[in-house]
Design a protein around this nucleic acid. Structure first.
Lengths: 114, 114
DNA sequence: AGTCAAGATAGATATATGTCGAAACAGGAG
DNA sequence: CTCCTGTTTCGACATATATCTATCTTGACT
């Protein structure tokens, strides 16, 4: 039964994310927290290896600059990378980054169900 | 070489997330897009099975209502659930939801590295 | 009842974010 | 060199979000 003033039951596990890790994780999740960016990322990851911006933009109802802005957010989060080849710019995913952010969502032990 | 006006190379894969799925995914990622909420979730998932709010609040430099607000966001995103027992309120994770959101981050095919 | 403590809710405010149009930049074609 | 197209950057604005203080609700205990 909980009695102390500073805590009523089990202490915080050391397995919990520290403040620094949480800050970095939050910035990456922030990049994913928009429907357009999520679809952009999905299109980029489901393309064979890379995809042209000119194939992404027409899929949305927003202006070109807005798509460019969202791609920049994904790029700055380290989730995708890009390269200009001639007139067009191509984007591809960064799998290691995707795996890392995905790992933050793992539940340590299989919880029995409740 | 890209030539058409509507697309310059490969078409969008059918594997890409549709607008509806992206909208729901984005709301969940939005819940994760804050350092405090990420730490809260981490503490909740790394506790054995559940954890008391009174053990969460003192870990942060923000006020009680702010923690309460963040917990509500996590709850409404379906990531955690809670129950009041006497004076205290206990939170636990919803593993199925965590797995679902994690699955949105999976890269369809192993990309050869670039 | 009356009191106290744990959490949640409400209302206010400052900051962050998504969106646009206009303008700048980069490269290819005439 | 000059024009045209694809993409990014810039500035502005409307909306959303994080945080606070104050208040309310719930339950325990005297």
């Amino acid at each position: 039964m909980p009695v102390s003033s500073s805590g009523c039951c089990a202490p915080i596990s050391d397995a919990a994310l520290d403040a620094a890790g949480a800050a970095e994780g939050a910035t990456v999740f922030k990049a994913l927290a928009d429907p357009i960016r999520l679809r952009l990322l999905s299109m980029i990851t489901s393309a064979g290896d890379e995809i042209c911006v000119c194939d992404l933009t027409p899929q949305f109802d927003v202006s070109g600059p807005t798509i460019s802005h969202h791609l920049k957010v994904l790029r700055e989060a380290g989730l995708v990378d890009c390269e200009r080849r001639g007139t067009w710019v191509y984007y591809w995913p960064v799998p290691e980054r995707l795996q890392w952010i995905s790992s933050l969502l793992a539940v340590p032990e299989p919880i029995p169900a409740r």
